[in-house]
Design a protein around this nucleic acid. Sequence first.
DNA 1: TGTACATCAGTGAACGCGCGTTCACTGATGTAC
DNA 2: TGTACATCAGTGAACGCGCGTTCACTGATGTAC
Lengths: 201, 201
Amino acid sequence: MARKKELRRPAARRTAVTPAGLRTRAALLDAGMAVAERDGLAGLSVNTVVAHAKVAKGTFYVHFADRAAFLDALHARFYENVGETIAAAVRDLPLGAERLARGMEAYLDACLAHRAVKALLLEMRSEAHVTAAIEARTLLFAKLVEPNLAAMRWPDAEVAARLVVAMTSEAALLELDARKRRPAVRRALRQLIEQQRTAAR
Amino acid sequence: MARKKELRRPAARRTAVTPAGLRTRAALLDAGMAVAERDGLAGLSVNTVVAHAKVAKGTFYVHFADRAAFLDALHARFYENVGETIAAAVRDLPLGAERLARGMEAYLDACLAHRAVKALLLEMRSEAHVTAAIEARTLLFAKLVEPNLAAMRWPDAEVAARLVVAMTSEAALLELDARKRRPAVRRALRQLIEQQRTAAR
DNA sequence: TGTACATCAGTGAACGCGCGTTCACTGATGTAC
DNA sequence: TGTACATCAGTGAACGCGCGTTCACTGATGTAC
């Protein structure tokens, strides 16, 4: 039953299965992060990535269907990491302002750890071909924020969550420019989401 | 004294002075908006712009030093218009929550009127060569927001203003997707900037 | 243990394409005398 | 009014370049008998 010689399918190559293959794939993604950090999304061509990873151009297409798939994989990997970090930070906290604030801080810390984040966060939203997947992942973050706002009895929690996510992204960019935590940014962020009880004026 | 024949300077061409010239320049910018609306920044090549404006490729370079200068002019023209609209809307209002809220609504309305705004608002932040000017204009908006927050006695008004601007941009994008005003978006926005006095829970 | 073959990752030359930019030129309009 | 010329916007063919993608091939590793 085994040992057929004929019928070699054109065999659309899937993701790597070999340890060496997996390593190469990871190396390409790592190179992508390094290039994004240096030159942003605009500099993230197949050429620069394979040059940085020191593999042949053809190897790129062994692991990714095309450039868009690569960008998507890059974005996905980053957001999975960040998502896990946040989940760990807020685990066991009840829904509400404190959980939300802690999650946001964890997010900011995670972003600070990856200088390529600007490309991933900001610039990828404009790459036409990848947009759908990016949007989905942003929406997922909003869905994590929303129940906290709901628990705080915010009206319009759904759209408010999206605004909060956008605000937090901007905060991440501000800290990224400074290359370090900016307490004023974090205070302002907390201020914006917490019920402000002090009387104005 | 007049009538010199020699000494024709290579004469780096400046902006158009002729009525016809000014019209062509405006037509190129209009074409830019139309293309940005249809295909986003990625589709905004010199080729597509001149094709849409129905002028020769060379004409583009009569009016703009290069593609980056064109994008900058596009962005500048849009933000000047929006800026004037906002200024008109908040004129005579004292600094504070009401003026801020009115300004934001005027901004959202202005964005809704230009479907190319997504490209201008979001995608231009990633075009490496133009970034500086874009940043400056965003910062200018933040500077308009800031005194209102200060009047409301917000701490960290400076960074808070940037977060508010980012949030408002996101709100504009949400409405742009819907192609119409979204009351929930505007309510959420107001909620976020106004001192919230109702007790939670 | 040896042999034949399947399976996979990796290679790099070659491709066509659309891009931004240049430049020698045309032609209309304005101006001096 | 006529003529000579300067000034400007506009033209489009031509350029070199880097891009994403393809493909026939190599070579290492695994597996069946």
